[in-house]
Simulated assay, not measured.
Amino acid sequence: MDKIQTLTSENGVVIFSKSTCCLCYAVKILFHELGVEPLIHETDHDPKGREIEKALVNLGCNSPPLPAVYIGGNLIGSTNEVMSLHLSGALIPLLRPYQTLA
């Protein structure tokens, strides 16, 4: 889907989210605590939100597809993948170019 491609190519860190999803909220808080201000696209506020979610599944995001995290234009995955990267110490190096100075 063009919207996914455009958003992820123009922004370093993008989280496709639902405003009512607790897992989405947890990932957003994690990124903020790590000093990253991602572009957050709430699919439930987008008229084409369901199409975006279907496209994310087709691109390889597990079901449920949200949150879907992109870093540097690459699909990282959903909550499980993000948390696994964080626990292994591999997430921060991916985010370092996008961290804001405190």
Rank of each mutant, 00 (worst) to 15 (best):
K18D: 04
S19I: 09
C21H: 01
C22A: 15
C22G: 14
L23E: 07
L23R: 09
C24W: 01
Y25H: 07
V27S: 02
V27F: 04
L30Q: 03
F31D: 06
H32D: 00
L34G: 00
G35C: 00
V36Y: 00
E37N: 12
P38H: 06
L39V: 10
H41M: 01
E42H: 14
T43F: 02
D44L: 08
H45L: 13
H45M: 13
D46F: 04
P47G: 14
K48L: 09
K48F: 08
K48G: 10
G49C: 06
G49F: 05
R50C: 02
E51P: 08
I52Q: 11
I52K: 10
I52A: 07
L56A: 08
V57T: 10
V57D: 05
V57I: 15
N58F: 10
L59D: 12
L59N: 09
C61E: 03
N62Q: 14
N62E: 13
S63Q: 13
S63F: 13
S63C: 12
P65E: 11
P65M: 06
P65S: 15
L66E: 04
L66P: 06
P67R: 03
A68I: 01
V69H: 11
V69I: 15
Y70N: 05
Y70A: 02
Y70V: 02
I71P: 11
G73I: 07
N74Y: 08
N74L: 07
L75C: 06
L75Y: 05
L75R: 02
G77F: 01
G77H: 01
S78R: 14
T79Y: 15
N80D: 14
E81H: 02
M83I: 13
L85C: 09
L85G: 09
L87Q: 13
S88Q: 12
